[in-house]
Each structure stands twice: as structure tokens, then as C-alpha cells.
Amino acid sequence: MIISRRSTYQKILAMEKEGAQVVERDLNLPVDVIISAAVCLAWYDCRNIGKKATARDEASSCLSLCVENIAANVLTSLSFAFSGCILIFEGESSFLAAILESSDELYAAAASLGMDLQLFCSYSSELTDEIILSCIGNTTKLTTGIYPKMPESETLAESFLTAFPSINPLSAHAILSSGGMLVEFLEWSHEHRIQGNPEISCSC
């Protein structure tokens, strides 16, 4: 979604001038941006929400089923690798009203998975950009300098680590930058594994 809207993508790239590092990775996860090792961001609008849902939901073109899919399947898959998720829904007032009516289901699902969920509704592409850039900027201020720069291309070691469902590219980078042994990492708690990372990873 980020790549498809070039103006948003260019604004994210421009944040490198403010200290953020933008790294692209091909991901199997249903996210648009990995903001930190602990937090991801997914962006939906009235056109792509069906495409990001299951084939059954897409065929039904029913928004309630799409939201149900996000709550039951998308958040579940993300909970293995992240402790927090930012969901942005962009569209007209009727679309946003329907999302808000179903928001309790999303919050309940996140709570049951032990995830922190932030939900934003946007009525324009400009507001969506503002939300995304603000989320990235706030995290960058808190985490800059914790780890060295992330490689622009995926390394063999990163590829190995991200094969595990609970490890995303930024947590893999944190592991590889820690200087410890892998066996020590495997003994860490989930919270310890996903502690802050300064990079931003855009999924393609």
C-alpha cells in the first residue's frame, strides 16, 4: 500500500534527513511499515481492505467480514512478532463510521492477544500521511542510536532469523547487533526480544 502511493513513500524516504533509516524488505506479514522491533503499522482503505482480507471476505465484499478477518487472523499473525500495532483506516464518512462501529471487536481481539492497538481514522490521503509520519517520527526520537545502521539488503543471518514467526527484520537486526550468542537470545523473554530498535522497515 505504501509503495502504491508514491507521495507517501517519498515523504517516508525524506525522513532519513531527520535521522530515521528506511530499509525495504519483502515480507509475508500483512503490514505496511515496521516502525520498531515491537510496533508495526497497517493501512487500509475502502479499496484495499478486501484485498488484504481472505478470498472469502473479498468475494462477499462485506466490510464487517473484513474487519472480522483483521481481528481474528491479521492481528493473530502479527502478535507473534509484535507487541503493538497501529491500524489506519482511510475513506469516506460512511466507511469510517462502519469501522468505528466494529472497533470494539478489534480492541477486544488485540487485548486477548496481549497487543497494544492504536486505531486511527483518516478522511484524506494528506491526513493519512500526517499520521504515518508522526508515528515514525515519535519512535525515531526515542530509539535513535541504540543499534548500528541496518544493512540495505537482507543478510543470510537475517533471513535465517526471520524464518521464525516471532522474529521480524528489526528484531533480527537487534539480535545480530547485540553481540550475544543465539542460544542466549532464545532464552530471553518475548518482551526482551522486541525492545526498541531505531530503524524503519517498509514492506513491499
Score class of each variant (00 low, 15 high):
Ser124Ala: 05
Leu182Gly: 00
Leu119Phe: 02
Phe120Tyr: 15
Ser125Arg: 10
Ile131His: 00
Leu170Glu: 09
Leu127Pro: 06
Phe164Val: 04
Asn168Gly: 07
Gln118Lys: 15
Ser177Gln: 07
Ser153Asp: 02
Thr162Lys: 15
Ile136Lys: 04
Ser171Trp: 11
Thr155Cys: 12
Gly137Gln: 07
Tyr123Trp: 10
Asp116Glu: 15
Ser159Trp: 14
Lys141Cys: 01
Ile131Cys: 02
Glu158Gln: 13
Asp129Trp: 02
Val183Phe: 08
Tyr123Ser: 09
Gly145Met: 04
Trp188Pro: 00
Leu117Val: 07
Ile146Asp: 08
Met150Gly: 04
Pro148Cys: 02
Phe160Lys: 11
Asn168Lys: 12
Ile136Cys: 02
Leu156Gln: 15
Pro148Gly: 04
Ile132Glu: 05
Glu187Leu: 03
Tyr123Arg: 12
Ile132Lys: 06
Thr139Leu: 05
Leu156Phe: 14
Thr162Tyr: 08
Ile136Tyr: 01
Phe164Gly: 03
Ser112Lys: 15
Met150Ala: 05
Ala110Ile: 02
Gly179Asp: 10
Thr143Glu: 12
Pro165Met: 15
His173Thr: 02
Thr144Glu: 06
Thr155His: 11
Leu113Gly: 00
Ser124Phe: 04
Thr143Leu: 09
Ala157Asp: 11
Ala111Glu: 10
Thr140His: 13
Leu119Lys: 04
Cys121Gly: 02
His173Leu: 02
Phe160Ser: 06
Leu186Pro: 00
Ala157Gly: 08
Ala111Met: 10
Phe160Tyr: 15
Asn138Gln: 06
Ala109Met: 12
Asp129Tyr: 01
Leu119His: 01
Ser134Cys: 10
Phe120Asn: 03
Pro151His: 14
Val183Trp: 14
Thr140Trp: 02
Glu126Asn: 15
Phe185Met: 05
Gly114Gln: 11
Glu154His: 00
Glu184Ala: 04
Pro151Met: 09
Thr128Arg: 13
Ser112Arg: 13
Leu117Gly: 01
Leu161Gly: 13
Leu176Arg: 10
Thr140Pro: 11
Thr128Trp: 15
Phe164His: 06
Ala157Glu: 11
Ser122Phe: 08
Pro169Cys: 01
Glu152Asn: 10
Glu158Asp: 09
Ser124Asn: 09
Ala172Pro: 03
Leu142Lys: 15
Leu142Asp: 12
Ala163Trp: 01
Ser153Lys: 11
Thr162Ser: 12
Ile175Glu: 12
Ala111Leu: 07
His173Ile: 00
Leu119Met: 09
Leu142Trp: 14
Thr140Tyr: 05
Leu127Thr: 12
Pro165Ser: 14
Lys141Val: 02
Pro169Trp: 03
Cys121Tyr: 03
Ser166Arg: 14
Ala174Ile: 00
Phe120Leu: 03
Ala163Lys: 09
Ile146Lys: 14
Pro148Ser: 03
Val183Gly: 08
Ser122Asp: 06
Leu133Asn: 03
Pro169Glu: 00
Phe160Arg: 12
Ser122Val: 04
Ser171Val: 01
Asp129Phe: 01
Glu152Gln: 13
Glu184Asp: 09
Pro169Thr: 01
Phe185Thr: 04
Tyr147Gln: 14
Met115Tyr: 12
Tyr147Asp: 10
